[in-house]
Simulated scan of single mutants.
Amino acid sequence: MDITERLSFFPSLYNVIEHPKLGMWMLYLTILALSIVVYKLGFAKKLPIIKSAIIYLFLAFGCTVLTFLGIFLPVAEGLVVAALILIIYKIRLHQSKKQEAENMK
């Protein structure tokens, strides 16, 4: 059994088997960026700068673990889907509020 057949999309895209150091860094940065997008779209609230820094520090630490899981499991792909769903939700919410404001006039 070939191990390259078991890789999920992003690790195979970044060629983790042939270039492990660069591939893992690229996978980590992808998962980190997608996690930040999902956090900002779905869960972020206005916080003081120190509390925000602590949250992002723990988010970066958690993404380290997710990167190792993301080699064979679709972690980054799931984050892409979550980001798309949250983007669609935010767009529809904005349109709904805009239409509601127009109806109030």
Rank of each mutant, 00 (worst) to 15 (best):
M1Q: 15
M1S: 15
M1G: 15
D2M: 12
R6F: 14
R6P: 15
L7Y: 13
L7K: 11
F9A: 08
F9L: 13
P11E: 11
S12W: 14
S12V: 13
L13W: 03
L13T: 05
L13A: 04
Y14N: 09
N15S: 12
N15I: 09
N15K: 13
V16L: 13
V16N: 09
V16H: 08
I17F: 14
E18V: 12
E18Q: 13
P20S: 09
P20L: 04
K21Y: 12
K21M: 09
L22P: 01
L22I: 09
G23I: 10
M24C: 15
W25P: 10
W25C: 12
W25D: 12
M26K: 12
M26T: 10
L27F: 07
Y28L: 10
Y28D: 04
L29K: 01
L29R: 04
L29E: 06
T30A: 06
T30H: 03
T30Y: 02
I31E: 00
L32S: 08
L32I: 06
L32H: 06
L32A: 06
L32W: 03
A33L: 09
L34M: 01
S35Y: 00
S35P: 08
I36H: 00
I36T: 02
V37I: 05
V38Q: 00
V38D: 03
V38T: 08
Y39T: 01
K40D: 07
K40F: 02
K40Q: 03
L41I: 00
L41W: 00
G42R: 05
G42L: 07
G42H: 00
F43K: 00
A44Y: 02
A44M: 00
K46E: 04
K46F: 07
P48N: 14
P48G: 12
I49Y: 02
I50L: 01
I50F: 01
K51S: 10
S52D: 11
A53R: 07
I54E: 01
I55E: 05
I55M: 05
Y56K: 02
Y56I: 04
Y56H: 08
Y56V: 08
L57C: 11
L59Q: 03
F61K: 14
G62P: 11
G62N: 14
C63T: 12
C63S: 14
T64F: 15
T64R: 14
T64H: 13
L66S: 12
T67G: 10
T67D: 10
T67K: 07
T67H: 10
F68Q: 13
F68N: 14
L69M: 15
I71L: 12
F72T: 14
F72D: 13
L73V: 13
P74I: 07
P74W: 02
V75N: 07
V75M: 08
A76Y: 06
E77W: 04
L79S: 04
A82F: 07
A83N: 00
A83P: 00
A83V: 02
L84P: 00
I85Y: 05
L86P: 02
L86H: 03
I87N: 03
I87H: 03
I88M: 05
I88H: 05
I88K: 06
Y89P: 03
I91N: 07
I91E: 10
R92K: 10
L93P: 02
L93R: 00
H94E: 11
Q95T: 09
K97D: 04
K98E: 09
K98H: 07
Q99I: 05
E100F: 03
A101P: 03
E102Y: 11
E102H: 08
N103L: 10
M104C: 08
M104V: 11
M104Y: 10
M104D: 08
K105W: 11
